[in-house]
């Protein structure tokens, strides 16, 4: 059995004096879709920021493809095979759609993503390829952020709030695209609030509560025990 794509082992992190993560441990294997669930403020985004080295881990280890990258700078962690779709999209506003896709691309590795394949996945982006970032709708920006991450040819796509603030039709488009990526064997780690869509998409779920992982299990286990949802997820 090969090493998991990513493994967090007892990771602790926080902002200033406020500790947010208390020994977070979970792993994502190749080709697997895993969700990170929990109510607001439970540490999901902080976990992702720490994974990418944007926030230092105060304790614990972060392994990527078996290599210990705890404390490594973000660009090394990302180029080890992680594609980040940050919360709030954060596309480059003074670049066109196409420039956004190309600027940080690393062609010719991993799943072999190219401009043509991203445009095939999101035809809207091709129509708007010469538009500047801020001229896009929220949904188009999210497609662009996903496309931009795919162009780095990651082994694992990491999405923070994949469909937050998007119209229902656009949400459906995003979930369809993620399902297509999953079908191609791309591993995905996703944070979102849309439980139904997450259950349809993912193999496994990691539930966080107050900076700790309180439950992990498969989609079948979640569906078999509806009390899990009321206990951990409903506000």
């Amino acid at each position: 059995m090969s090493a998991p794509l990513i493994a967090l082992e007892g990771v602790e992190a926080g902002y200033g004096p406020a500790q947010v993560l208390f020994g977070v441990s979970f792993a994502v294997n190749a080709g697997e879709v895993v969700t990170l669930m929990g109510r607001n403020g439970m540490g999901k985004s902080t976990t992702l920021r720490t994974l990418f080295g944007l926030l230092p881990a105060r304790a614990g280890r972060i392994l990527i493809n078996g290599a210990d990258l705890t404390g490594a700078p973000p660009h090394r962690i990302a180029s080890a095979g992680l594609g980040y779709v940050p919360e709030g999209r954060q596309i480059f506003p003074r670049l066109t759609v196409e420039e956004n896709l190309v600027a940080t691309a690393s062609p010719g590795r991993g799943h072999g993503w190219t401009l043509a394949r991203v445009y095939a996945l999101f035809p809207r982006l091709e129509e708007r390829r010469r538009n500047m970032g801020p001229e896009l709708s929220g949904g188009e920006q999210q497609m662009l952020a996903i496309g931009r991450a795919l162009m780095t040819n990651p082994d694992l796509l990491v999405l923070d709030e994949a469909t937050e603030g998007l119209a229902p039709v656009i949400r459906a488009d995003i979930w369809t695209a993620l399902a297509a990526l999953r079908a191609e064997g791309l591993a995905i780690l996703v944070v979102d609030k849309n439980l139904e869509a997450l259950l349809r998409l993912a193999d496994r779920h990691v539930v966080m509560e107050a900076g700790r992982v309180t439950w992990t299990g498969s989609t079948a286990e979640v569906q078999a025990d509806p009390s899990l949802i009321t206990r951990y997820l409903e506000v």
Binding site: L54, F92, A103
Partner: peptide, 21 residues
């Protein structure tokens, strides 16, 4: 030049996408 312009807009984002600026 694209990397320079992207980093001008959001340096952290460029680094999180795998490029040292």
């Amino acid at each position: 030049g694209l990397v320079l312009r992207a980093a001008r807009d959001n340096e952290t984002r460029v680094r999180a996408l795998g490029l040292a600026t």
